[in-house]
Every structure is written in C-alpha cells, then in structure tokens.
Design a protein around this nucleic acid. Structure first.
Lengths: 123, 123, 123, 123
DNA sequence: GTGGTCTAGACCACT
DNA sequence: GTGGTCTAGACCACA
C-alpha cells in the first residue's frame, strides 16, 4: 500500500496522528511494540529520522516508551489517557470554534449531514 | 488592545481570517476601505510586509481591490461570494473531518453543547 | 573560543544545559533573542539541526518561544520557572542520592571541601 | 520482586552499580560467588547477555574474577579497592559539580537536610 | 536486531 | 534574515 501525504502538514505529525488513530481503533494495543523505525521508513518510503521524530512525539506525550535495543512499546493506560485528552481538547477547543464558525456562516445543524441514527431539530 | 497570535498559523493568515470575519459580521462593508497597511502594522505590532501579504491574499481571493493612491477597497459582492465559498469549504472539507473525529472519539451530538434553539435526538 | 564537548552526553543536551546556565546567570534575560541557530552552528562548529534540537527542548520546557521569521525568544517568567524547577529537582532527586552515596562510602561532610563561609560540625 | 529500571542509563550499568552497592553494604563479601548469570536474568527479567556484560565490567574493574566451571567470585581486597576508587571519584568529580550546581541555584547547605548528627553553620 | 545521535546539504514558509 | 522540515547516509550503544 502506498501512502499519500498532505503537503501542508509535517510528515512526522501525520505519522503520529496515524499511530494515534491505530491506538484509538484498537489496532495497536497497550504493551504492543510499534513497528520498527527502519521498517516504517521502508514501508512508507520516508527517512528513518522522520519516523523517529514521530515516535519521539509519542514518547513526549507519554503514550509509548522507548526500550533500548528492543523497540518502542505502547504504555499501559495509553488508550485511556489518549481518549480523555483528545476528548477534552475537542470539547474545550475545537467544538467552540466550530460553533462560532457555523454561526458566522449562518449554518444550522439542520443544514448538515448527520450520522444515520441522529437527528437535529429546532425548538 | 494588543493581540495574541497563534504561533502555529502564519500571522498573515490570521490577519486574513480576522478581516474575513469582520466582513462576514458586517463590521466591514462592501465599498469600505480597509485600514491602511501602515496603521494595522502599528496597531497590531507586526511587520508591514506581513499586513501587505494578508491583504494580497484578499486581493487574490477577489474580495478586495487595490486602488492606487487610495487603498484597498472591499469589492461589491464580496460578502455573498465569501459566504458561499466558506460554506462550501465547511461542508465539503471541515464537516466530514469533524464527523470522523467524533466517531473516533466515540462522541455523539448528545454529548455536545448546542446553540439554544437546537436539539439532537437519536432515533 | 573553541568548545570541548563531553563525548558521553548528547551535544544538543549540553547546549541546552549551557543555555540554561546562561539564563540562570543572567547573561540571557527574559525577552532576549537566543543567538540564531545558524550562528551558533558556525560558532560551535556543529550542525544546525543539532542546535535546533537543543532549542526545541527549551521550547518544550516552555522556557523559550519560537517566532517565525524572527528567532527564539526567552519567555517572560522563564528565569523564575527555571530556578524553581531545577531547585525542586535537586532537592527531591539529586540530594537524596548524594546523601545515600556518601553514606555508602562512609563519607562525612567534614571530609569535603565547602565554600568559604560555610562549616559543618558533628554534634 | 520485579525491578524498575531507569530508562536513561544502560541496564548493564545499573546492574553493575547494584552489585557494587551490595559489596559495599557487605551483603556480598570477598570470596563469595555472584549469583549465576542465568539466575539473575530470570530474576530480573532481563537478557542473559546483559547480565554477562555487567559482570564483565566488574571483571574489568578487577573486583571479581571468573573461575571456569564455578562462577564469578569476588576478589580479595575488592571492598577496600572499591571504597577507595569510589571515594576518589566522588571527591574529584562529583563533589565539585555538586558545589557548582548549588552555587548556580543559589542553594546553601543550610537549605538542605543533613544526616542527624551533622550541622552546618555560616561564619 | 533495536533506537539515538550527528553530519551535510537542501528546500520551504515566514518576517 | 529567521526557524522548520526532510533526505541520505553514517556511527554508536544497547539487548
């Protein structure tokens, strides 16, 4: 599988996000080793240093830990921590901005496609 | 009033967004002159070149036009054009990403604060 | 002035420590710009990326902030924050280890050279 | 009992230090056999090669000797030699750095907890 | 095998 | 001018 990168956001950031998605989706579980820096570099056709930078971000976020000579291991509690942190960020930062933008554009939820089982009504 | 800039997005972009907001909110109307580059630079404590770049973006978007010896004037139809363009972008780009993110975080609209007169329900 | 690097600790770490020392010593003050990445790289005969890595550590520690197109600026409150953090680390981590080591080596403070105006006595 | 390793210092080094501590504390005496590589590896959940490397360091320091078919035995005079070497290192290397760091942080011995029977005074 | 660090050199966006 | 990112390739210590 090849990979298409968004030119406007750093590759290491996209790789970090991709890995986070995998953790949230359960494809990567706590205690698992991340695929090795070299392997990912080959698979995604990018420089090992770039992969390393992405992984280092995860280390800084306390989501994975580096074990010398072994690899990068997903820490216990990472999934929970991640979910809480991302939810908090969405609620406190992203959502208010979304509402503000919708108001500015005079858009209502009735104008937007919602997931199947949900429905919005004005009162 | 000084101004707090988001370090992660270009200042000229933020200034462009700020101006667009003013137009959408009606604080700047079609036919109005934008405040001079030099004035904005002083007010916001930024480089005149940066202001100029922001204004140039607006020119490129056909929202304002430069009049030699006069200044930058908001074009007729700018508000309508802006509203359509921003709405289209929101619907086609932003909204799908928002839904995707909410799904990943297992968030439902019932978990989110909605504007006063709107209400969501699961079916 | 040339520079001697400790081979056992990463250059970027040593550069970070050096910069911190300068801040603590008041040679670099809050609001000052750090010398540019390129300049330091030339002066110390190291790679710009290495300098950048050192500076990034300081950004992560909230001691300096990066201003695009301008440079790296020492944040307000950096000195105070630094002093508190380093003191806390010394007291809670380093000092207990020192005492433990001295006990293990059966060393007393009377065996050690102290700064001029201080004196230790057994009771 | 499992063991918590400091991720920043090599495991073999930590194991060497641990063993040295045991010798200094008298839990391991001259003439004693060190626990077997394989036993330690199982107990501490680490790679036998790592244990082996730690033991080799002790051999290189002339603190233990390998006896074919028997194991690693703590040499006569090891305790004394160790005490002298570690004391010398502490005095010439560690202590000056400690004083330097304390000066930088503007810390005095009066700010630090000392063992019960010792007291510091300024003159 | 693993990750960590460094170099040399390039290109980019921003001010 | 500034910092940020990426590549290609190298060397090291660790397990």
């Amino acid at each position: 599988m090849s990979h298409a990168w968004d030119q406007n956001v750093p590759i290491y950031q996209q790789l970090r996000d991709r890995t986070v998605s995998h953790i949230l989706a359960g494809r990567l579980k706590e205690g698992d080793l991340l695929p090795s820096v070299r392997q990912v570099a080959v698979d995604l056709q990018i420089n090992p240093l770039t992969v390393s930078k992405a992984y280092q971000v995860l280390v800084d976020e306390s989501l994975v830990e580096s074990q010398r000579g072994v690899g990068m291991r997903i820490k216990a509690g990472a999934t929970h921590q991640l979910l809480e942190a991302e939810r908090a960020r969405f609620l406190s930062q992203d959502w208010p901005e979304i509402l503000k933008r919708m108001e500015q554009l005079n858009l209502s939820f009735e104008d937007l496609p919602l997931p199947n089982n949900q429905k919005v009504s004005s009162q």
